[in-house]
Design a protein around this nucleic acid. Structure first.
Lengths: 215, 215, 215, 215
DNA sequence: CATGAATGAGACTTCATTCAT
DNA sequence: CATGAATGAAGTCTCATTCAT
């Protein structure tokens, strides 16, 4: 009795249910942290029945993975593209941070979800691949003498550490100002603490200041 | 008769059992991560009976806290002391990183234990207090014009991020070289990427290079 | 075929399982007493799995409550109705006891279940409300001069005490004879209530009065 | 005086410790009820160590028994003596109740301890023996025609029920007035016992007898 | 597919009791 | 004897997962 049209509805429902679960999971992970969250918690934050969860995901691990990968897939291409276009150390660094902070500002929920997981959950293949891309880009920049010869592992680690920690600070302030965060991080990496621009509303100008300073 | 240092056997056993549990916990947390660890897992890694655990700790949370505070108590005074002695930006930054990396190198297990917890578990009053100390030291350095005027929250976050991430990279390498890690981080903060010394056995020299560079 | 009253199989199972648990609980409480009974004991007296218990009740306390309230709901309306119809002291007392003893005779299991609980478990709001109803009915009977002026609290207590203790004796005998138990209790109270002295210091005289009165 | 009969300090301590445990137990049983009380609770209410408990009692059951029997031993001889001296129905009943209520008034703690236990704990050989004594005294009073011919089991039950329930009411009031409680109970039973029909199949008639009698 | 109750493994925790000191 | 930590059986309860409807 089900015609072709009803199949369309089925598909719709499936997509919608998957989204319901993912959104509920994001919220619950952010609220309770990954470890304390149970599948039941996620389902409870949903109009669906518990069995339905398993039509979409095998476990909370898998939902978490989906969210994490959603993030990785959203941000990695942007980062890669930006960095590929970079022609100087400064551009490389600035666009890496700016892209990251802008993403975080526009998607606090996913960022929180991920921050509240254990680091063992965070460092998964998909995420590590993102880190690796950064490392490789650094290495090739070094090879091309765009970067001075330095330890790519350490630089990658340093950028990741600064990105995540400064992002967290950034989210504590209103209004969100990813540009200022990027200016800060860029200044630091380009010229060290003395090159960091003072925190001001007019960030563009002070940023160029930093440029000349660090150069 | 009883010597001055001698304790009853009971006292000895208690001290030993507490240590047994803490060591088992360190191992298990490092292996499974905080979230996946159960009290049973900790006990099973011990020759003790299940009930004995509860004579020493109320929950895995409490064991974790004990480990975390052990770290905080070991490292915070050292960091404070070092920073208090610092008379220049560079000294401030260098000794912060060096002290941190040396501690981590000498106590990998505790570091891993703590890294593998959820960030919600990590950011506890005791730890936050350590971060705050850093922030306050930065602020007072800014006030004294030792530091240029900058955003102390962001700088604190950046230092924390670099410390933890670079420490993790450092632990992947043999032999452990906390000095090199400190040189890297110090170079970065003092003069930005261009000031980072090349990775070499002779780190002292490149460090002084950086010094003159940054100075 | 499906009649109007037919429910889905799920509904049936739920009703059946609840009954399984309640019956098992009645039996186990009566056998072991409330205090010694564990949730496991109840489940073991059931074909169900341990977790299933918690789909129906939160604790043994809650099952016990359900049983107790089942009794209270079964007996309180009957007692109220009967007493409301009463037009004399004797009717009031007789129907109270008869109704109670007949209920007990028809539902030994629930009575035993309740008797074997601690008195702190027995004296719960629902049950106390039943006692209060009795007390209020006594008071209003006193107000209407159907009863002589007496201490309603004490009379309520006396009736409750006699009802429970005599019921227990009644259940020791075969065949069960609630009518005889009611006759006994009624006789005791009818010959006596008029003789109870008003709550006063000078009881002796009114007491001998009572003697001659009753004789 | 400390004569030959005086006890060693050891003996003193033993007696004292036993008393410490019993008093703590009385308090804790009264507070938490028998079921909810643990040996640990009792020990905690004592300056003693947990192991010491077992030098005096095998289990909480045994402490409870000791308390209960203390009560039974204190009250049974008094009740027996009083009843033996009784030369009339009224004296028999009055002194039974008065002795009981006076004991309860003077030892609320023990009464509460016992009331808060399950009835299965309460109805132990020692206590049942006390009830039996009452029943036997009733029977012998019936045999001597001091009492009319009636059901001794039921009367015993009725007296027990009234005694315990009215005692509880009595304790709710200040000042304690055991005499008033005894007057009430005595009045009830004196005005009534003569009107109780003989235990016979033909209860209706004797019931109407009672009616006309009482009317 | 959605539903949601049943399942039972297993985590957490308490407690009576023992026993070395 | 007193002490009090160790023991481990046993109870409470949760939760991921299954499966009949």
């Amino acid at each position: 009795m089900d015609g072709i049209a009803s199949k369309g509805k089925r598909e719709q429902t499936k997509i919608q249910n998957r989204a319901l679960i993912l959104n509920a999971a994001r919220q619950v992970f952010a609220d309770l942290g990954y470890g304390a969250t149970t599948v039941r918690d996620i389902i409870r934050a949903t109009p669906l029945a518990s069995g339905t969860f398993y039509n979409y995901f095998k476990s909370k691990e898998e939902v978490y993975q989906a969210i994490r990968d959603e993030v990785a897939l959203a941000i990695r291409p942007r980062l890669s593209d930006e960095r590929r276009k970079a022609t100087s150390v400064e551009e490389f660094i600035r666009c890496t941070f700016r892209t990251f902070f802008e993403y975080v500002a526009g998607d606090r929920m996913n960022f929180h979800t991920i921050r509240h997981a254990e680091s063992t959950r965070l460092r998964t293949p998909e995420v590590i691949a993102g880190f690796e891309e950064l490392r490789e880009d650094i290495e090739s920049a070094v090879a091309k003498n765009v970067f001075p010869p330095l330890d790519a592992d350490f630089l990658m680690a340093a950028m990741v550490g600064v990105a995540f920690e400064v992002a967290e600070q950034m989210l504590k302030r209103e209004p969100l100002d990813p540009e200022a965060a990027a200016d800060f991080a860029t200044g630091l990496f380009i010229g060290g603490v003395r090159a960091i621009p003072e925190a001001q509303p007019a960030t563009k100008d002070s940023a160029s200041d930093v440029d000349s300073h660090a150069a």
